[in-house]
Design a protein around this nucleic acid. Sequence first.
DNA 1: GTGGTCTAGACCACA
DNA 2: GTGGTCTAGACCACG
Lengths: 127, 127, 127, 127
Amino acid sequence: MPPIRLWSIEDFQIDPSRPLYEQFVEQIRAMIARGELEPGTRLPSVRETAASLRVNPTTVMKTYQELERLELIVTFRGQGTFVTQAEEAIRQTRMQLAKEAVRRLEETARSIGLSLEELWELSREKE
Amino acid sequence: MPPIRLWSIEDFQIDPSRPLYEQFVEQIRAMIARGELEPGTRLPSVRETAASLRVNPTTVMKTYQELERLELIVTFRGQGTFVTQAEEAIRQTRMQLAKEAVRRLEETARSIGLSLEELWELSREKE
Amino acid sequence: MPPIRLWSIEDFQIDPSRPLYEQFVEQIRAMIARGELEPGTRLPSVRETAASLRVNPTTVMKTYQELERLELIVTFRGQGTFVTQAEEAIRQTRMQLAKEAVRRLEETARSIGLSLEELWELSREKE
Amino acid sequence: MPPIRLWSIEDFQIDPSRPLYEQFVEQIRAMIARGELEPGTRLPSVRETAASLRVNPTTVMKTYQELERLELIVTFRGQGTFVTQAEEAIRQTRMQLAKEAVRRLEETARSIGLSLEELWELSREKE
DNA sequence: GTGGTCTAGACCACA
DNA sequence: GTGGTCTAGACCACG
């Protein structure tokens, strides 16, 4: 059973100034959170992924380990790595991402002394 | 002409896993953006700040130089460092911070396949 | 993948009364602007450069970071530092240097009350 | 015999990142070179100038000393400081400034691998 | 007194 | 291996 398809480096938006594995984690997590990678889907192996993304295998390994720690993927030895079947974990992730995003927005508003409404208005001004 | 007052390390919330100078820049920028540090105010000297924050002078200098590149402070040789008189630059900074914060929120919503309203609702659910 | 070749201190013309890093920036920028360092070329590592130029690694790092802010080089974490592939940025730099040089010439002419033609004539007189 | 008039800081264009005295020297030298300050004119005293420009007296002193070294002004003890009567010195200065400006232009052209004509063309392109 | 540069050397995360 | 941050301490020009 092959994985849906190999990744290409163009599937990711990379900022060279930030850790690669961190950006892979974020973007694969988003793929799972929005349902683009469905539960049970088999992911390409570490070796395959490293080759297709042209990155160091240890970078992919760190990515997968972190996603595993987040309980978004599971590895079955000898069988491969799969998106978790636990939809609850995916639901939780979506909520965490939402809460975190709003928390950051509120933190920014607080730091410049604005209410959320004022921040919103300001962000909509031109120039 | 002394600066308003020396900083204490308690004036800053420091995450030891991130670069010190980066956090100083962010938090001083916020002080200026919300008007806590008024235009024309003299900042404590590099040496004073280093002593009061218990960090190395070069760390403070890197902080000040970054704030200067952001055009939020100005250095007059031999006289010290001052919050810019150009209130326009401060206004711009507030707007940039607001726009950036909202952009990140929209980016998060997009990445998990939600509208801004849906993201907001989700962030307000309990658990 | 080694860089083209190490630098020697003889590759640079150093005026000891001016900041080292500033002169390195100017001269490496010129190498890129005139195509001597081609897009994609890997620069010698910070440590190698520091050793071959007999300067401190932090001096080289400051040089590279400044060139990075100018968008003339890009750093890939753990991989090294490379001349940007964005030839547009290089073209822009050439134009900026040209415009700036002419602007300075016009400024000098203005400051001594001459037209560009008169300045040119004057500079060609002997003694 | 009063000097023509006191200077105000608005008579000068100041870049805070460069030495003050250096900029005063350049700009007063230009005033003399273009004839705005005529030979024999009496300059305001160091003390007066420091007060009217709101700078440190030692800065003005250093400025005058440098202009004296350039033989553009002369000080008669107890009488004051005057623009030199030696028109030859002024002529020389104009020529030095012109030669130096052209030398810098040629140096820039050389550093980016262009002829003077090509540099000129490039500086005239838009964007 | 001020900031700016440079050195020497340590430690860290990342690939 | 790579660059990035931080410390400690020296020296300098400027005002």
